[in-house]
Computed example of a mutant assay.
Amino acid sequence: MTRLRAFWRGDLPLDEAFWTWTVLVGLAINLSAIIALLILLSLDRPWEALIAGYAFTVPYNIMAVIGTWRSAKRYQGPRVHADLARGASVILMTVLSLV
């Protein structure tokens, strides 16, 4: 839980914030939610599917963008890396939120 809190605050290195928390964890959470959504839809439970599909993913996706953005702000390397991480996190999390 402390790593998640550090991610939210932007205290993690940019590479960990982006690759671990935004890409890997974000994809795992979103893929799990899509699977749950499809299973619930096949069981004709649309309201539960809606909740399973968006109740955890959208808040996490917002947190991933904010955590990456904050880590990018503190990044000491080339500015282009920070800007690319910001842009990629916004695009990735937006697409995953809409799927």
Rank of each mutant, 00 (worst) to 15 (best):
T2G: 08
T2V: 15
T2E: 15
R3N: 13
R3M: 15
R3V: 13
R3I: 12
L4N: 11
R5H: 11
R5E: 11
R5D: 10
R5I: 13
F7Y: 13
F7G: 08
W8K: 07
R9L: 14
R9E: 14
L12D: 02
P13S: 06
D15H: 12
E16P: 01
A17Q: 01
F18G: 03
F18P: 04
T20D: 04
T20K: 04
T20M: 08
T20N: 03
V23Y: 07
V23M: 05
L24E: 03
L24M: 11
L27D: 02
A28N: 11
I29T: 12
I29Y: 07
L31M: 14
L31V: 15
S32V: 04
S32I: 07
S32T: 12
A33S: 15
I34D: 13
I34L: 15
I35F: 09
A36L: 15
A36H: 03
L37I: 03
L38W: 13
I39D: 08
I39A: 12
I39H: 11
I39M: 12
I39N: 10
L41I: 03
S42Y: 09
L43E: 15
D44G: 07
R45M: 12
R45D: 09
P46T: 03
P46Q: 01
W47C: 02
W47S: 07
A49T: 03
L50P: 07
A52K: 00
A52W: 06
G53T: 09
G53N: 02
A55G: 10
A55H: 01
A55E: 08
T57M: 02
T57H: 02
T57W: 00
V58Y: 04
V58F: 03
P59A: 01
P59S: 01
Y60R: 00
Y60G: 02
Y60A: 02
N61L: 02
M63W: 10
V65N: 04
V65E: 06
G67Q: 04
G67H: 06
T68M: 10
T68H: 07
W69G: 06
W69H: 15
S71K: 09
A72K: 09
K73H: 14
K73Y: 12
K73T: 15
K73L: 14
Y75A: 10
G77L: 13
G77P: 09
P78D: 07
P78F: 13
P78R: 12
R79D: 10
V80E: 12
V80F: 15
A82M: 09
D83R: 15
D83Y: 14
L84G: 03
L84T: 09
R86C: 06
G87D: 06
G87T: 06
G87M: 11
G87H: 05
A88E: 02
A88V: 04
S89E: 05
V90A: 15
V90M: 11
I91R: 00
M93L: 09
M93V: 03
M93D: 03
M93H: 06
V95C: 00
V95N: 00
L96E: 03
L96H: 00
S97T: 01
S97R: 00
S97V: 00
L98S: 02
L98M: 10
L98P: 02
L98E: 01
V99F: 02
V99K: 01
